[in-house]
Design a protein around this nucleic acid. Structure first.
Length: 404
RNA sequence: GUGGUCUUAGCUCAAUUGGUUAGAGCGCCAACCUGUGGAGUUGGAGGUUAUGGGUUCAAUUCCCAUAGACCACCCCA
């Protein structure tokens, strides 16, 4: 036996049942919203040809998890979901038809230096609309993202909207520096542009231009649409400093921030009409967002929006003694047929008190006990561990009790 | 990727300038209690002090490397 470490790799995580259940809960809520807007799921491979990502992401292609596979192919782990879905659309356009809406919840991989809330494998939830050039598509997909936060119970989510068209003529270095404006300030943005090879006068000119920007027609349409979807004014805003540094961004761009927390954005989106074409030569309009699942989970947890879920089991059927294992198994089966989540205690020799303690520690609400007394009367004992109350009843009538 | 702080039992933390068998609380297991609870009492298990080297008569403590966590850059979700 080798003396090997059992820690996960840097930036990768194990999830215990309690955390995994919270993640599942959040995922289910998001899916409900996506489906309520008519979006259907798709999945793409974990591994893609390296070539589809190259040249699309912008600055930091060092963060790709890339390697040669056993067939000497250059491959990369899914870095984001926009690029793979663009490949997917080029490949499957005729099968899915246009316009096409989809959502996708899958892990992505980035070889960053991890910190709290920053991981090398994290889940991204994407939603996009393909084949629609109208700003209506941008407005809708923004509303879908915002709706997720509304349905989750956030009170202070806000989408910051801009349009890349307003930044027309800005070199990539300027866009990237302006994107950081809030964090590094005007002087910082100026310095950054100059250090990246922009002349001082040009840098100043870009900054002045940003300051004087007014919302264009697209942005006004989007903000108006959000208002008509019932979002309060505090939920959306024009923000000329939102720039998004992905090379493929074009048209409307937006980010969602949780204003009562000091974390960065939890969602980022843009129109990316040119992406499918740059990969495949086929032109398909596209707009959509990537939502940070882990960051959203953390924010929701901080704000107490996630219910405590220790277990999905609702009932523990105890085993009175070894001779009555089959009796307990039969009760468990019947209760499952009622539609309950039922766990039968796994070790037949443990004492009843231990079995009940087990149910408490697991957070199971109900315990069923059936010994000789119950059997002689054709009944079972149903005990509520939260209220510390128990009744004897026939198994068929237990159904109405256990569902309370 | 650069710089910094950190890692002791399942969890939260102790251990005097390097000095006997590394402690405590909580948790866990067992008995009291052969048909029922988180309490109580008593007892018990659990550590190669992250891993591997080095210095020293002696290392949890000092040095180096590796792994991981966190923080600031960087970047972003």
């Amino acid at each position: 036996m080798k003396n090997m470490t059992t820690q996960p790799l840097k930036g990768f995580r194990d999830f215990l049942p309690e955390q995994a259940l919270k993640r599942q809960w959040l995922k289910d809520r998001m899916i409900e919203v996506f489906e309520s807007w008519g979006y259907d799921p798709v999945e793409t491979p974990t591994l893609e040809p390296l070539s589809i990502f190259e040249g699309q992401i912008g600055d930091d292609e060092k963060l790709f998890y890339k390697f040669k596979d056993a067939g000497k192919r250059d491959v990369a782990l899914r870095y984001d979901q926009s690029v793979p879905i663009a490949r997917f659309m080029a490949e499957n356009k005729e099968k899915v038809g246009l316009p096409f809406r989809r959502y996708q919840i899958q892990p992505v991989f980035r070889a960053e230096k991890p910190q709290k809330g920053r991981y090398r494998e994290f889940i991204q939830c994407d939603a996009d609309i393909f084949g629609v050039a109208s700003v209506l598509a941008d407005a809708e997909v923004i509303a879908v993202g915002l709706d997720i936060y509304r349905k989750l119970g956030f009170k202070n989510a806000k989408v910051l909207v801009n349009d890349r068209a307003l930044l027309k003529g800005f070199p990539y270095e300027a866009v990237s520096a302006i994107d950081k404006l809030k964090k590094i300030g005007e002087q910082g943005a100026l310095d950054e542009m100059v250090s990246r090879g922009i002349s001082k006068s040009d840098a100043t000119m870009y900054l002045d231009k940003i300051r004087s920007l007014k919302p264009n027609e697209n942005i006004n349409f989007i903000l108006d649409y959000l208002s008509k979807q019932g979002f309060d004014k505090s939920w959306y805003k024009f923000d000329p400093t939102i720039a998004r540094s992905f090379s493929y961004s074009s048209g409307p761009i937006w980010e969602i921030v949780i204003t009562d927390l000091e974390s960065g954005s939890v969602l980022g989106g843009e129109r990316f009409d040119g992406l499918v074409e740059s990969i495949s030569g086929k032109k398909i309009e596209a707009t959509g967002f990537g939502l940070g699942f882990d960051r959203t989970l953390e924010a929701a947890e901080t704000l107490g929006l996630i219910p405590d879920l220790k277990t999905k089991a609702q009932v523990l059927v105890t085993i009175f003694d070894e001779n009555l294992v089959n009796n307990s198994a039969g009760i468990s089966s019947t209760l499952r047929d009622f539609g309950l989540n039922v766990e039968m205690y796994p070790n037949p020799t443990d004492k009843l008190s231990k079995q009940i303690k087990y149910a408490i520690s697991k957070g199971i609400k109900w315990v069923v006990i059936c010994g000789p007394d119950e059997i002689s009367q054709s009944k079972i004992t149903v005990k509520n561990l939260v209220l510390n109350e128990q009744v004897q009843c026939e198994i068929n009538t237990s159904k109405s009790i256990l569902f309370k």
